[in-house]
């Protein structure tokens, strides 16, 4: 692992991006906007799965997900740029790995929901409370994304954690 980090940081791509002084702050602003789209859109789905806002038809719970996915895409892109510009700052950070863990957890949780719970969405009647599996999926998702936010913001303070 150490070798490729040094290599990445020594590339013209990494150094070149670092030379664009406004790039880092611009990526940060976009990263914050992306997280708002993500937490807004996915949070809406998660809250509905947990049984809140029962007047929202369950089939409309994913209405804002395209925007949440756009937010995730913005953050994956800006996050990748951060990593390319300063690989060692992240690769050796316990906080960053915690962030990655929760992103993966959120993704696996979403995959679980998509592959096993799809039929139950369609069979849920209006005004009917959501099943426990939905509530757990929603809670895990919401908690995970806020954990991602937490560890991301705490990066300059937790660092390696050591």
């Amino acid at each position: 692992m150490p070798g490729w980090i040094g290599w990445l940081e020594s590339t013209r791509l990494s150094a070149g991006m670092r030379d664009i002084t406004w790039l880092w702050p611009a990526c940060e602003s976009l990263h914050f906007m992306g997280l708002c789209l993500l937490i807004g859109g996915a949070g809406f789905l998660d809250l509905r799965l947990m049984g809140f806002m029962p007047k929202v038809p369950i089939t409309s719970a994913k209405a804002f997900m395209p925007w949440a996915i756009a937010g995730f895409a913005i953050n994956l892109t800006t996050g990748s740029l951060f990593f390319i510009m300063a690989p060692a700052m992240y690769a050796f950070s316990a906080a960053w790995w915690a962030k990655v863990f929760f992103i993966v957890l959120a993704g696996l949780n979403a995959m679980f929901f998509e592959t096993t719970q799809g039929a139950r969405v369609l069979s849920l009647g209006p005004g009917e409370d959501t099943p426990v599996a939905f509530k757990i999926v929603g809670a895990v998702s919401l908690t995970s994304w806020f954990a991602v936010l937490y560890f991301g913001r705490m990066l300059p303070y937790i660092g390696t954690g050591n």
């Binding site: 150490p2 040094g6 670092r18 002084t21 790039l23 880092w24 702050p25 060692a88 050796f92």
Partner: peptide
Amino acid sequence: AVVPARAHHSFAI
């Protein structure tokens, strides 16, 4: 030994 890490958010300046 080989990596001069950046531990700084505004290192670009």
